[in-house]
């Protein structure tokens, strides 16, 4: 089998939790995370600005057999639907890859990591920010 290329970055053009981060800053955060975790960073793909579109994420998932994993700028870029998220986790792990979120410094590398990620997303859904 050919050697896998590295970790693909995933940035977005939509606001996250009401905040906007310029795309080049998202890339800096991902690149810094990859450097600190000793991951080989591959140029990021930017998700569409249209609400509800995850077409670019799907392209990265299709690319997983050639990758070691992916690095999201933030864990809150995952789809809001839990069933769809779980399909993504399963696909990542089935392909022998891992999933990282740079802002939150999260690594999802096995089934046991899933609940911690889901807890964060669930709390974020209900907790308010002053």
């Amino acid at each position: 089998m050919a050697e896998r290329a590295g970790h693909r970055g995933y940035i977005g053009a939509r606001p996250l939790n009401g905040s906007r981060t310029p795309q080049h800053v998202q890339n800096i955060v991902i690149r810094d995370y990859a450097r600190r975790k000793n991951l080989h960073y591959l140029l990021s793909a930017a998700e569409h600005t249209m609400p509800g579109s995850y077409m670019v994420l799907e392209d990265i998932l299709d690319e997983l057999p050639q990758l070691q994993g992916l690095i999201l700028y933030s864990i809150f870029m995952l789809p809001p639907d839990e069933a769809r998220r779980r399909q993504i986790y399963d696909r990542v792990l089935r392909e022998g890859c891992d999933l990282h979120a740079a802002v939150e410094e999260i690594t999802l590398a096995s089934q046991k990591d899933i609940q911690a990620v889901e807890d964060i997303l669930l709390v974020n859904k209900f907790a308010t920010i002053l």
Binding site: A5, A13, Q23, A46, E47, H48, T49, S53, V56, D59
Partner: peptide, 14 residues
């Protein structure tokens, strides 16, 4: 095949 740019419009990414 490593330098491909998938079908897109620049507007879709901001």
């Amino acid at each position: 095949s490593s330098s491909l740019l998938a079908t897109h419009s620049d507007v879709w990414s901001g």
